[in-house]
Design a protein around this nucleic acid. Structure first.
Length: 879
DNA sequence: TGCCAAGATG
DNA sequence: CGACGGATCTTGGCAC
């Protein structure tokens, strides 16, 4: 069996990983993104290469023998960021756990160690593979020596053999150093010949072979300038060559025998992974699953009583309650049981016991008895289904966790607990399995797990509340999100009536039109194919019909609507495809999709609002998403005809905030012109156009208004100049100029944008008017993309988030008013800036008044809030 | 099962 | 120098 040596350029891979991955940190706040990237790369090598010998080489210290040649070597390089340098010890720890050797040598770089080892191995006829992100290493490529360079990220690599190098770059491995001598390398501060880039270098080397040969034949060079430059920088070129050449005879002390690789002990690796928080990598380690089960069994014991008959003295007035249900959809799911934990003890109450108990119901409905739960809305809706109207929920671990940091991806009891340094429980996945394998284990295992979750809530409640208070977010939590959960729960439980006949009717009509279109498209294409497959469609359009390729995706031709739109006049088939797409979307997502989730009995849809997901504080809606029902195109808008009142002589009611985000912007930026515009109730897009184009209002063309609208849209949604250029079909430069003119016109907005970015850099987060927070660790990133994104987020989140705060408060206020004033009207949906209700006709006038009053006055800003209102027989008609 | 491209909304 | 694409949800296709 042939032996294989893998040599890893440790520094290079770590740098790559650090800049490729977002700044992750584990629960102790230690940055781990580079180590994480390094680990995924390492696992991949072990799996794919199965090396018999393995060494990771690192650079040593600041100076190398190259500095004697050139003191400026690697000069001007930015200092390694501390977020990265603190990860080096972790990597060495990681290598220790994997039993992998690493090596560094004073005065030498990782390259030299790798070059030397690779030479030795070559003499022993071993296969060698070098892993790095540094193109210099390509000089080592040879028969039996492959060099893999990271392309994008860390695990995406490109493998160079001598043939591939020739094909890709056009040079032999031994010419790599000559090339660098000519081109130089700004990152290593190697001068090279100014003005010579890759193309010229390759051309020269193809012609002459080596740097030396080039200088021997200078007279043959065509191009006076080039020749001059070569002559003037001869010394630089030769010095550069020397610097770029890897030393293949470094005085290293390791021998091949020292770096044989015999695998690792899973136990050690698993332990370290857990410590680092690499949970997603656990299952890639042999025995990873087994180990996690082990952990389940090794939890500290917990005692609890199985309740067979609920007595009211079980409760204490301050009880943690956990309702267990595996299904995501709590409106339809099965309740597996309840756990109650209080200062008296821990209890598990089986579903039937609880639901058949008067004492349980009485306790649940008693507002004075405080309950600490996880996901108040889930509990509320699931119990409503059982005719229990739970009251007195004073703590919701889910909402609290979301408020503390919406960026956390895992807001479940075990994850939250872990972040609070509380470990005495397992993950749901460990107890129930996941995916198709998910199942309910034996009763005792399940009940103990549920008790542990209630216990975690009970134990952690106080410190979580402290944390909220510390961040001045207790009001947001207790006066906004918690009461909102009850309002949303009521809305979800109540549901929206759907006219399924209407949907079926539309579906039948669509089906026919789609069939006809399909046939026509096949006819024009000359063959039948799957129009829904971008791959097949791309083949037909761009290969068979030879239409011009406008945009590509990673996997092939782009067939997105904006691309097809540009080809509309190029071929008869295009309008048909566009229409097919449009109607197909309506059919699959809105007709079929909605019909699938209509409750058979009552013909209602019960969407679920996710209250703890978005980074800005907005809600989202699932199964189905009722926040993206079509409206822009007439054809799609008709879907709304299927949303109807649930009772006769009732109507659908809609109230929407007009320009709430821009009003919020005017308020928080304190921009006088913007405030003035809203106080005078001007058309804001026209007003923007007037200011940006410097014309009177009667001179604003519809095109100017359209462009101004796009700029306003951009401000609200935080898009970049690139984004604006895309939406307006102009160049990035023009878009940038646009934005600048906008800022000149609204200096208050400009000042706010500058100030909020500064604030974000200082604090590490931004806040909304109700003190919702969003952390922006990447605001100090050295990566342009990351930093820019964070900056736009800093500007945008207070705007969008404050608007979200406002409508949430309006919902709570409105629900209270409806109840106090004995309205029959019911809230149905929230779509970011509008509220949808249903109401009996006789309430219309009174409701209109109340709705406007509540929505417009729920907060007082420096500009008025304006609400538009409409009602009709269906959602479609409420326009 | 999981990812991608596409398209719907504010 | 230029880099750079708002969020969330659902669908169908397709590779694994």
């Amino acid at each position: 069996m042939s032996e294989k040596l893998v040599l890893v350029d440790g520094n290079s891979i770590l740098y790559r990983a650090f800049f490729a991955l977002p700044l992750l940190n584990n629960e102790k706040g230690v940055y781990t993104n580079a180590v994480y990237g390094f680990t995924t790369m390492l696992l991949r090598i072990l799996e794919e290469e199965k090396p018999s010998h393995l060494l990771v080489a690192f650079d040593a210290g600041k100076t190398t023998f190259r500095h004697k040649t050139y003191t400026e070597y690697k000069g001007g390089r930015q200092k390694t960021p501390s977020e990265l340098s603190e990860q080096f010890p972790l990597v060495k720890e990681l290598l220790g756990a994997f039993d992998i050797s690493h090596y560094e040598l004073d005065q030498y770089e990782a390259d030299d160690i790798i070059g030397t080892m690779s030479n030795e191995a070559k003499q022993d006829d071993m296969d060698v593979k070098v892993i790095s992100g540094d193109r210099d290493l390509l000089q080592l490529v040879d028969k039996g020596v492959n060099v893999s360079l990271t392309k994008k990220g860390v695990t995406n690599i490109e493998n160079y053999t001598p043939e591939f190098l020739e094909e890709k770059v056009g040079i032999r491995p031994d010419q790599v150093v000559d090339m660098k001598a000519l081109m130089g390398d700004s990152s290593d501060n190697i001068p090279g010949i100014p003005g010579v880039g890759e193309k010229t270098a390759v051309k020269l080397l193809k012609q002459f072979g080596t740097l030396e040969a080039i200088y021997e034949n200078l007279d043959q060079i065509n191009g006076k300038k080039l020749k001059e430059k070569l002559e003037n920088h001869k010394d630089d070129a030769f010095m550069s060559k020397e610097l770029a050449t890897i030393n293949r005879e470094s005085p290293i002390k390791v021998k091949l025998n020292d770096i044989t690789y015999n695998g690792y002990k899973p136990q050690r690796v698993l332990e370290l992974f857990k410590e680092l928080g690499f949970h997603s990598l656990l299952n890639r380690i042999e025995g990873g699953d087994y180990e996690t089960e082990q952990e389940t069994n090794s939890l500290e014991e917990i005692e609890y009583r199985l309740i067979e008959d609920v007595k009211s003295d079980l409760f204490s007035g301050k009880d943690a309650l956990f309702l267990e249900m595996l299904e995501e959809h709590y409106y339809y799911g099965t309740v597996l049981g309840f756990a109650v934990v209080n200062h008296k003890g821990n209890y598990f109450i089986p579903t039937e016991v609880a639901l058949n108990s008067e004492a349980f119901k009485a306790w649940a409905e008693d507002e004075k008895q405080e309950k600490f739960v996880f996901d108040a809305k889930r509990v509320t809706v699931a119990l409503k289904r059982q005719e229990i109207d739970i009251k007195g929920i004073s703590f919701d671990m889910l909402l609290a966790s979301y408020i503390i940091n919406p960026a956390e991806n895992h807001h479940d009891v075990p994850s939250i607990s872990q972040r609070m340094d509380f470990y005495n429980l397992s993950y749901d996945e460990e107890v129930y399995g996941k995916g198709a394998k998910q199942k309910v284990p034996e009763e005792e295992v399940m009940s103990e797990h549920v008790v542990r979750k209630a216990n975690a809530i009970f134990q952690l409640k106080d410190s979580i509340v402290d944390k909220l208070k510390e961040n001045d977010q207790y009001h947001l939590y207790t006066d906004l999100e918690l009461p909102l959960a009850a309002v949303l729960g009521e809305m979800e439980y109540y549901g929206v009536q759907v006219d399924t006949d209407r949907l079926n009717e539309m579906g039948a009509e669509l089906k026919e039109r789609l069939n006809t279109l399909e046939q026509e498209i096949y006819e024009l294409a000359g063959e039948s194919f799957n129009i829904n497959s971008p791959k097949q469609l791309g083949h037909i359009l761009f290969e068979k019909l030879e239409l011009p390729v406008i945009k590509k995706t990673k996997t092939g031709y782009s067939t997105a609507a904006d691309v097809l739109e540009q080809l509309k006049d190029k071929h008869e088939i295009m309008p048909k495809i566009l229409l097919y797409r449009q109607l197909g979307k309506l059919q699959s997502t809105y007709i079929e999709g909605l019909l699938k989730v209509v409750d058979e009995g009552e013909q209602k849809i019960h969407t679920r609002f996710n209250q703890a997901l978005t980074q800005t504080g907005r809600l989202s809606s699932t199964e189905p998403n009722l926040q993206n029902i079509p409206i822009r195109l007439e054809e799609g808008r008709k879907i709304r005809q299927a949303f109807i009142p649930s009772k006769e002589d009732w109507v659908i009611f809609a109230g929407d905030y007009s320009q709430i985000e821009l009003r919020v912007l005017a308020h928080i930026a304190g921009d006088e012109k913007l405030i003035d515009a809203f106080q005078n109730n001007l058309d804001i897009h026209t007003k923007t156009a007037m200011d940006v184009f410097k014309v009177d209002d009667d001179k604003v063309t519809s095109n100017m208004r359209r462009q101004a609208k796009a700029v306003n849209f951009g401000i609200v949604y935080g898009i970049s100049d690139y984004g604006l250029s895309q939406s307006l079909g102009i160049t990035r430069k023009e878009a940038k100029a646009f934005i600048e003119t906008y800022f000149e016109s609204f200096p208050g907005v400009k000042a706010y944008m500058d100030q909020i970015v500064k604030e974000a850099k200082q604090n590490g987060y931004v806040t909304t008017i109700m003190n919702r927070r969003r952390y922006l660790p990447e605001i100090t990133s050295r990566n342009f993309n990351r930093r820019s994104f964070a900056e736009r987020t800093a500007m945008n989140t207070p705007i969008q988030g404050s608007a979200a705060d406002i409508i949430k408060k309006a919902m709570i206020d409105l629900a209270a008013r409806l109840e106090e004033e004995n309205f029959e009207a019911k809230l149905l949906l929230q779509v970011h800036d509008e509220l949808i209700l249903e109401a009996p006709k006789h309430e219309i006038e009174r409701l209109q008044q109340t709705l406007l009053e509540v929505m417009e006055n729920t907060v007082q800003l420096d500009v008025p809030l304006k609400v538009d209102f409409a009602c009709g027989d269906t959602w479609f008609d409420a326009k």
